[in-house]
Design a protein around this nucleic acid. Structure first.
Lengths: 133, 133
DNA sequence: GTATCTGCAAAACATTTGCAATTCT
DNA sequence: AGAATTGCAAATGTTTTGCAGATAC
């Protein structure tokens, strides 16, 4: 996404583009690391000295409500956040903690769930050992 | 599984079958609800008055280490536990909170992830609205 | 000037840990 | 007796909430 258009993009999704919100959203889309609230805070705090963790949490909640980001539950003890985009899966390396995206084909998943169930969200999370180990 | 053989089954997996452990494991396999630690504690405490939440947590950790149960991260804020069995997916209803199992076919997932990645665990978690709403 | 946003401090909640008492063999 | 297990109490770590001050429209 064009960075210059982030404010506009947030506004289109019903989020008033404050400085903090714009920076947080920019960080999420520019970092494929699927960051936690803590990671976002640690990374942005030096550049935004007044930033508080509460604002990070408030903002992530707002983004989630507005469907701008999606909560990833690949970690057992903290949430990660992913910019909403095409459906994809995640692989978490148990050794280095790295998270890798991969394509998935869910074209036949609808036939696996009962009739009249409506799917709102997908999470395909694998874990194991990546090729650096 | 035959309830009478639970002690034996635990022992075979390197878990000494204390009363608490046997009851906790029995509860997990007899309840397809993928319970949380809290649910297990609340349900078993009346019958085992001395039971503590710490023991529930200790036991779930032990079962997880021994590969008897698997942690499910379908909830955003608490862990659920699933008896280890054939690979299957989970659908969580956002309205009633119910969790439904469904079959999945992962025969072609290996080709989607990079070479030399070894998969240890799968989690296929969907959410949406079930057919009761 | 009023509504919104931010951020500190405190609370809430799930989970873990230290350790003493209990239980099992 | 010795080792493993249990459970209370306290600590930890993440996330949420109350609220006062700051900011934006």
């Amino acid at each position: 996404m064009n960075i210059n258009n982030i404010s506009e993009y947030l506004a289109q999704h019903g989020v008033r583009p404050s400085y903090q919100r714009t920076e947080i959203y920019k960080y999420i889309i520019n970092n494929k690391s699927h960051p936690t609230a803590e990671m976002i805070f640690k990374k942005l705090a030096p550049a935004i000295p007044t930033l508080s963790k509460t604002t990070v949490y408030n903002t992530l909640k707002l983004f989630t409500d507005k469907n701008l980001v999606r909560i990833l539950t690949i970690e057992e003890n903290e949430k990660r956040y992913d910019a909403v985009s095409v459906v994809h899966g995640h692989f978490k390396c148990e050794v280095c903690g790295g998270i890798y995206d991969f394509d998935i084909d869910l074209s036949n998943i609808d036939e696996k769930i009962p009739d009249h169930f409506s799917i709102k969200n997908y999470q395909i999370n694998l874990s194991g050992i990546c090729n650096n180990h």
